[in-house]
Amino acid sequence: MFKQTDEKRFRIFSTVFLCLLTIIALLPIILIVIASFTDEKSLLSYGYSYFPKAWSFNAYIYLINQSKLILRAYGVTVFVTAVGTVTSVLVTTMLAYPMSRKNFKYRNLLSFFVFFTMLFNGGIVSSYMMWTNIFKIKNTIWALIIPNYLVTGFNVFLVRNYYSNNVPDAIIESAQIDGATEMRIFWKIIIPLSVPTIATISLFTALCYWNDWLNGLYYITKSELFGIQNLLIKIMNNVQFLKSGSSNYLGVGNMNLPGTSVRMAMAVIGILPIVIIYPFVQKYFIKGVIVGAVKG
């Protein structure tokens, strides 16, 4: 009896606490959503408010006029995110698994090899030279997928750590005694055991590809290959640039650039697809976490 109420009380506390956090997390985002629907003039005259004096759809009308650009950019980003995430998860788990094997001779060496990449990088100039001159990926869709994000040390260590703590040596040993090859152990035993961590890094990787704009910035000049982030950031940063001092020598008054509410609307359409898709993906994600809990 006593245990039950204790658990119940804790559950209530958790719910209340997380409710509060959720509100804190969402309120600022709601403010920009509302700002994107606020009349530009009202925004500047009366300030940002959850209950604006005048509403307006102008910002979205402006964006609908550009829907061709935006839809194509969505297409690019979705493709890149899907292909990038699948490849990345595969390569990452394959790299992390040997690192987790306590009796693998090169375990520490490999870990250090991976970790070193997290500390040192040669800078953008040399990697740009390599990718464009040797691999010729400039202005190809691969430029958005391959450089930088396919294997990150962070994810490798997350997976390795999960394996070392959640895959009992005994399972592998008994499989080895049964004569299973390493490949077979990896596919048949390790992969099914690593659903939670695969869910986690898939999520991280997908977000990373979805939000990436650096690869686009460096390697893409053709506008048909711009992803959604590149499109948004270009417009936002052009405005930023105009406001910064370095633009003053242009001395041109004819700049009719998107106003605050349009910029807010752009931010909204940048995250909208994730907000819509995420609950569906999350089902698998949470299932993964729970499957892991049962098996572990």
């Binding site: 390569v91 394959m94 790299l95 690192m99 040669g122 800078g123 040399s126």
Partner: peptide, 23 residues
């Protein structure tokens, strides 16, 4: 065999991270 499993990842890191370090 374990090294072979790790190979794609190793190759990628050498290309993406180690070669540009000459910079």
């Amino acid at each position: 065999p374990l090294l072979l499993i790790a190979l794609p990842g190793i190759v990628y890191l050498i290309i993406n991270n180690y070669i540009p370090m000459f910079g």
